[in-house]
Design a protein around this nucleic acid. Structure first.
Lengths: 110, 110
DNA sequence: TTATTATATTGCAATATTACGATAAAGATT
DNA sequence: AATCTTTATCGTAATATTGCAATATAATAA
């Protein structure tokens, strides 16, 4: 059918999956890498940095913004994008529980 | 065109994205959650646990296995799946660098 | 007001994903 | 051997994603 059955899963599972999904493309990983590297947040420089057309980048930025991983700030006629720490910290919480559980796992059959 | 331009990105970016992508579906997050919870690894119980048809689960397990997030072990006519710690630890390394950089970021414009 | 610059949106073609019924494969049980 | 159990694969319909040219939008500069 091609439609993810989100209603079958918990809100947390859906939220986590949507963040992972947003990060599930090398261009979007590259955008995050770039925003982390530049320290101050950069706008259309991303378009110059990445070897993709401007509309494509714009689309990727939109997806990252939709799940709250980045924020956009209007500065004149340009837009300044940057990491949204809040979402990352929330994401980190989930990951911490995963890695904690993993550490305690012993009876791993494989 | 519908084809991800992996050749434009680094191996690490592509690898990270592929792991994120594999985790970018609530059913696959639920599978990981379940494998973490059960401690000893479970096989076809996953099919009973999740409200999806057996072929669908099988497909999701395959995707998780393809990126190395889980391992499968034949036990009689059943198969025992479990977390592949190695990949998770590798994944954690990337995430640690991200969160470290994030912590040092100060000139965040937004 | 008319460019110019920067970003977003639209529309579309190519491809990928999701889900599942039907069926295959392979070991276990009778 | 015949059957049951468990999991994988095939085929396919519905939907989503990726990428970009063309165009729209909106602020700035001339």
């Amino acid at each position: 059918m091609g439609l993810t059955r989100t209603e079958f899963f918990t809100e947390k599972q859906n939220k986590t999956a949507s963040i992972m999904k947003a990060l599930g493309h090398p261009a979007r990983i590259a955008i995050i890498d770039f925003l982390l590297k530049t320290d101050k947040c950069i706008c259309g420089d991303i378009v110059e940095e990445l070897p993709l057309a401007q509309p494509t980048i714009s689309q990727h930025l939109k997806e990252l913004k939709n799940v709250g991983l980045i924020k956009g700030n209007i500065e004149g006629n340009a837009i300044c994008y940057c990491i949204n720490k809040k979402t990352f910290i929330e994401f980190q919480k989930y990951l911490t529980t995963v890695f904690d559980k993993l550490e305690k796992q012993e009876n791993n059959c494989c």
